[in-house]
Simulated assay, not measured.
Amino acid sequence: MTTMLQEPRAVAAPVTADDVRRGELAAFLRSRRERVSPEQAGLPRGPRRRTPGLRREEVAHLAAVGVTWYTWLEQARDIKVSPQVLDAIARALQLDRSERSHLFALANAVDPVPENDCPGVSADLRMMLEQLEPFPACVQNSRYDLLAYNRTYSVLLGDLDRLPPEERNCMWLAFTNAEVRATLCDLEETTRAMAARFRASMADHLGEPAWERFLAKLLAASPEFRMFWARHEVAPITSPRLRSHRHPAVGELRFNFTGLWTGPHPGGRMLTLTPADQATRERLDRLSALARSGGV
């Protein structure tokens, strides 16, 4: 009996996470391209058009990239793509904010024009802040911008409404505003911890222009921040905290901080300061009454 030897079969390479991501990116680009009509893109339709939406060469033209390169992108080829090119493609395909975020996530790239971490504060959240009186409360994004706050929180730090919007940031106030710094009983411990939490948050936003500009602004304005930043200390933003404030009208106030995320983390967060002792509870009532009367 003659034994037939079979040729060994080639073993297919395993599918990697990058393969899956490139495939999803290619399918997403094709679906978005087919959705945009030539008229929407400001292009003539021309005769004998069979392709739904835009052609590949039209997207490449609108994004100012090579046709072959864009074709490879839609074919899930393993090629490098810069954030600037992705930005141009997103504009050519008229992607909305959610679609744009999805595009950059699939490309494993950092968006050079990222969405605000917490673009707005709803009327319901503002109502909650008011109902928390006399407890100080605010809503801030992951960069510590103050997006909304109640009366007691404002007067606790002086008068936030007097400040221009670009200065209403907890990090900026703690390191550069003399009036706010005077309210912090444990100034060095508090600012050091804030710098450590900011560094931990910054890791999720490396390369984002808004974060990089704010970091540069802090480094230029505060020698104290530069010193803490050079230590590379990190602390979780959710770490429990007890903080004491000193107010000229009512005296020392000791608070426990509670942070509640208002959406996906990292994003908007509602921060509530609750009294750590009975004396603080009584002084908060006085502070809130002064705020309502305009006496602070």
Rank of each mutant, 00 (worst) to 15 (best):
V139L: 03
E39T: 14
K80N: 15
V121Y: 10
W211D: 08
A249N: 07
C185H: 12
D204E: 13
D87Y: 06
R21D: 07
G42F: 11
F214V: 04
L206G: 04
P223G: 06
P14C: 08
L163F: 02
R48T: 05
V36S: 12
A105Q: 15
L242G: 07
V113F: 13
G294L: 06
V110H: 12
H232I: 06
V113T: 15
L43M: 11
G66A: 03
E252V: 14
F198A: 08
R199S: 07
V121P: 12
L29N: 10
T274E: 04
V67Y: 02
E24Y: 09
G294Y: 05
R231E: 15
A216L: 11
M171W: 07
H102M: 10
H245V: 01
R281Q: 08
L287P: 00
N169Q: 06
P264F: 02
A174F: 11
E34A: 15
P112D: 00
E188V: 03
A63D: 05
P236D: 05
L103M: 01
R281M: 04
H265E: 14
A90R: 01
L157T: 05
R168C: 03
E24F: 04
D19K: 01
P209I: 01
P38S: 09
E130M: 14
T280Y: 10
A10V: 13
R45N: 09
D204Y: 13
C118P: 06
R97F: 10
V250M: 06
A107E: 07
T68K: 02
L62V: 08
L163H: 06
Q131E: 12
V59P: 00
Q75P: 13
V234C: 13
A182M: 06
V139Y: 00
A200Y: 11
E57P: 04
R55A: 00
L86F: 03
A64R: 12
M128P: 05
T238A: 15
L157E: 03
A203Y: 08
N108W: 09
W69H: 03
T16V: 08
R55I: 00
L219V: 12
E179P: 03
A230T: 07
W69S: 03
D111Q: 02
D96P: 06
D18C: 00
A289T: 04
E34L: 05
F198P: 02
A276R: 11
D277I: 05
G46C: 03
A235H: 11
G207A: 07
I237G: 13
E189M: 13
